[in-house]
Amino acid sequence: MQVWHGAAEVPADLGPTVATLGIFDGVHRGHQVVLAATVSEAESAGLSSVAVTFDPHPATVHRPDEDFSLIASLPDRLERLTGTGLDGVLVVPYTLDFARATPEEFVRAYLVELLHARIVVVGDDVRFGRDNSGDRDTMVELGRAFGLGVEIIADIADPETGRRWSSTWVRELLAAGDVAAAARVLGRAHRVRGIVVHGAKRGRALGYPTANLRADDLGVVPADGVYAGWLIRPDHSPDDGTSKRLPAAVSVGTNPTFHGVERTVEAYVLGRTDLDLYGEEVVVELTERLRPQVTFVGIDALLDQMADDVAEVAHALDVPAPVRPPAPEESHAQ
């Protein structure tokens, strides 16, 4: 799949396409239906399939003071889009100047003139152009004006609940810590991506060294608690047979036992004390919430719970449980 960051990167000899557009935050199952229809239409017509997406998210441009986080970072969004079978993705830099374009101006400039679209596939809830004034009916009207075929994909609902797949639903589930249900809407486990930073190193002192990520840099982070998951090293090229995908016990929160105030995501790779991940970009994938975050009285109680958490994580991930590390000598004196 080709990725073009801005109109200038689109090749001049790009042939006719079938196009779709959207933020595709999370690339959830509703998005996947629209993207699959785009790919299918293109294959049937012998054309290229292209998705238009936007970065940063319009909400952060129009309402910069609001607390808004993405479900998926742009690299994760593009990785998921690659898996849909698309031939290309155009990432349009979203600015206030760009946002002033009318629906007609957007369709003419990007879909007709730049991408040479013959067919446009969009969801029933599509919005585009200045003040989100363009909708499905607008797209149909502009399709007639520009000679575009327009396919509208009706909202797809979850067969178990009847609720339509949506990014809003994913956010609600993550806010409740229900990463398993969020995975059902997303079609895969929720993940966060960030740079490993130095922490207080308490985990190392206790025998459970963790890779620490600042939660405010990661997009949508689920509710505080302890999770089973995986630590993934996307840029790691091992020459020793080690895996890029490692089972991990993940703690989300402020470390109330130690009176912490900064919210972090800390991942302990099961049985590994030899990893040096500082400064490395990692992905933390969250598959199951085990318990909420609680405050412990004394280090011994904390160590017992950590050992239980690690054993439960190993069971949830169906991997061998590591041997419990020896308690630090000073723990019994506290």
Rank of each mutant, 00 (worst) to 15 (best):
L270R: 15
A267I: 01
E288R: 12
V269H: 01
G279E: 07
L270C: 13
P292K: 04
T273L: 04
R291E: 02
V269Q: 04
V269T: 08
R272G: 09
L270W: 14
E281R: 15
D276I: 02
L270E: 08
V297H: 14
V294K: 09
E281P: 15
E266H: 00
E280D: 14
L275V: 01
V269F: 10
P292Y: 04
L290G: 01
I299E: 15
F296C: 04
G298I: 04
V297F: 08
I299Q: 11
V284C: 10
G298P: 03
V269E: 07
L275E: 10
V297L: 12
T295W: 06
D276F: 11
F296Q: 02
T287S: 12
R272Q: 09
E285R: 11
I299S: 10
A267N: 10
L275R: 05
Y278V: 04
Q293P: 01
D300R: 15
G271S: 07
V269G: 04
T295V: 05
E280S: 15
L286A: 04
P292H: 06
E285G: 09
G271C: 09
A267C: 03
Q293F: 07
G298A: 11
V283H: 12
D276N: 15
L290F: 08
Q293G: 09
L290W: 00
T295P: 07
Q293D: 13
P292V: 01
P292N: 08
E285P: 00
E285I: 14
R289T: 00
L275T: 03
V284F: 12
Y268N: 14
E285A: 10
T287V: 14
L270H: 11
E285W: 11
A267E: 09
G271L: 06
V269Y: 05
P292Q: 06
Q293N: 04
T295K: 14
V294I: 14
V265M: 03
G279D: 04
V282K: 14
T295D: 06
E288I: 01
G279K: 10
L270N: 13
Q293C: 11
D274V: 00
F296T: 08
E285L: 12
Y268W: 11
V265L: 11
L275Q: 09
D300Y: 10
E266F: 01
A267D: 08
R289H: 04
R272Y: 09
L286K: 01
E288C: 05
E281C: 15
T273Q: 10
E266G: 00
L270A: 10
R289A: 00
V283C: 12
R289N: 00
V265E: 05
V282M: 12
L277M: 06
V284W: 05
Y278P: 11
V283F: 12
V283L: 14
Y268D: 06
G279W: 12
L290S: 03
V265K: 07
D276R: 15
G271M: 07
I299R: 08
V269R: 07
G279F: 02
E266W: 02
V283R: 15
D274F: 07
T287I: 02
L286C: 01
L270I: 11
V269L: 11
P292T: 05
T287W: 04
G298D: 08
V282L: 10
P292S: 03
Y278N: 09
Y278G: 10
D276W: 11
T295Y: 06
E266D: 00
T295N: 11
D274Q: 05
D300M: 15
L286G: 03
D300S: 15
L275N: 13
R291F: 01
R289K: 07
D276S: 14
V269P: 03
